[in-house]
Design a protein around this nucleic acid. Sequence first.
DNA 1: TAATTAAGTCAATATGACTGACCTAAATAG
DNA 2: CTATTTAGGTCAGTCATATTGACTTAATTA
Lengths: 161, 161
Amino acid sequence: MTDLNSLLSPFFLNDKEIRKVIELLFFSYRDFTSGPDKILEKLNFGRAHHRIIYFVGKKNNITIKDLLLVLQITKQSLSRVLNQLVNEKFIIVSTGIDKRTKKLSLTEKGKKLENQLSTIQIDKIKRVINKYSEENINGFKEILYDMIETDNKKIFQQIND
Amino acid sequence: MTDLNSLLSPFFLNDKEIRKVIELLFFSYRDFTSGPDKILEKLNFGRAHHRIIYFVGKKNNITIKDLLLVLQITKQSLSRVLNQLVNEKFIIVSTGIDKRTKKLSLTEKGKKLENQLSTIQIDKIKRVINKYSEENINGFKEILYDMIETDNKKIFQQIND
DNA sequence: TAATTAAGTCAATATGACTGACCTAAATAG
DNA sequence: CTATTTAGGTCAGTCATATTGACTTAATTA
């Protein structure tokens, strides 16, 4: 079955080549997160803290509800990590017009950390994609985008509106 | 600073666009692993089990040492998960020519699960990249490859020798 | 023979996630 | 204006994945 598919599929679409893509995703994603991880470790923070800082930085005054929508974790999970960030003054909380809601934003300290973490990843991506054509880079982004599930595509669009 | 960079950089290289790439990687990777996760959950397994099954399937008769090299976790971490897979007969262990080493391979039961899990991810990738040119797909793979750290590039090559 | 290597184990700990139950306060719908 | 829904919080218990550190055994190699 696999043999027949290999014969019928173009080289870049046979199972063996597709498996390489699985591995490339695994290896590249791991190395992509390892840079920030080292800085976070010194602050006794983890990847969860990074994600919160990233998305609060991205969407200033984001509510808890919307942050949960992006992160797709439970509020109990968010709670511990977010409270640490608030207690240590990386994030500041204010009340929304709808007084049930809370708005999260980065403090100066938080912005500084956000910048430090993002710079590592931004520089890495820049270094890599510099070598490629606009055509290739757009293809890269489009393929990644297509790999996102429909509902999450909407969330991606929302945070980039 | 960022403003100036934005003006000087081509559109696809400015920080705002690079941040989208960060998000695309986050969202796509999460959705990429979510399919197998659902199947693993029924077996009371996690992503760690998946990775072991994947790489043992990829490199038949891999030793513990080499598996640790690929996974980059401690042997104590590997131990618990691997023992579960061995106890539940997804993986079989034999002794190497060097009698200090152990060789891991998938049982029929293990191959079946490996296939079930990989098929989800292979099909997803196929569905997505079908729409793209060979040029774009090769670009996609090359960019991912370039994002891997030097030492890990070697490991990627080793498992694909 | 001594040193190194491969593998395993015991113990303690951290992080990030979960479910379930329950609460308060504010907004909104009937 | 009451009833319901929504946003957020909290307590308790659990699980999965990972860590460090210390130590052991057996086999290989220098």
